[in-house]
Design a protein around this nucleic acid. Structure first.
Lengths: 152, 152
DNA sequence: TACATTTGCATCGTGCACGATATAATCGTA
DNA sequence: TACGATTATATCGTGCACGATGCAAATGTA
């Protein structure tokens, strides 16, 4: 019973800080992304494409855990900015292939400079690389666990 | 230089999973909160009020790190559901005091049963209480560090 | 007491985020 | 080869989330 309360306490102190920390990190990215006229989700989509170009909407959706109804308008905005192209696959007319345009590749150079600037935000926290590694490990475990839960 | 790359790598693997995990946890709450006709942010506001009733919009804003322009419409929805009341402070006409109504207190009994259900989601991850505690500790450190950064 | 500044809340516009639903293309199978 | 089920994307409606801005009450100061 005492064990239970302990877990309950942890749970209460876990979901909210996750939510708050996530929003704050996006906020920290804000000014740097604004210079590139990008939002954080748009930046994530580009990161995925820089890693592997020509993905379908569905593949991007799986990678970022975002629904297609979130991605469709976001991708249209990236298209209107001239960063990507959206084209129906010839092999499967249902599928839409997303391809980086020249402007989309060009922006990568500037975008790659952002992480170094973000790091300074974490430096004040006095957190060692080792601690962050363990944190990341647990974070991915939670993420994987929940993914599995959602799929079932 | 090698050290730098390591940190860069960590950074890339930190912000995105935070963002994804946060959204997934909210999703896990979804069905339970739907039974109470609440959203996750609305649930958070009620949690704050259950801890301390009669707070101003500003105090709730500080507590949840949400801007007042996010809270105002959210609080109006809670008001229209009859869960809270919004009233201008007599001491300071600028301030709006948020007070729980009977229905707002009544819902607490049901809401307190949710955490136990959420825990089952984490159980599959094979994560010890000790690991979660350390995770929480780092999470709060990151959160505090960024708060301090934002204020300055 | 005047009045510039600050504070607390609200309005507006944009962009996620997602559940519910629609639609067309493809697949599986009788 | 029909045709029901599945798949990929898109549309619609609601609710955050926040930057920019507005406004009235309160505060500080000459």
């Amino acid at each position: 019973m005492k064990e239970n309360k302990e877990i309950l306490f942890l749970e209460n102190q876990l979901c909210f800080p996750l939510y708050a920390t996530s929003r704050l990190t996006t906020k920290v990215y804000g000014p740097y992304l604004k210079e590139l006229d990008l939002t954080y989700p748009q930046y994530l989509v580009l990161m995925v494409l820089w890693e592997e170009d020509g993905l379908s909407v569905n593949r991007i959706s799986k990678r970022l855990h975002l629904e297609t109804n979130t991605l469709t308008p976001l991708l249209k905005r990236l298209e209107s900015k001239g960063l990507i192209s959206r084209e129906r696959s010839k092999a499967d007319e249902r599928s839409v292939e997303i391809k980086l345009q020249k402007a989309g590749w060009d922006i990568q150079v500037k975008a790659l400079k952002i992480p170094a600037k973000i790091i300074s935000t974490f430096q004040g926290a006095d957190i060692s690389v080792e601690e962050l590694k363990q944190f990341q490990k647990t974070l991915f475990r939670l993420l994987n666990s929940m993914e599995a839960q959602m799929d079932s």
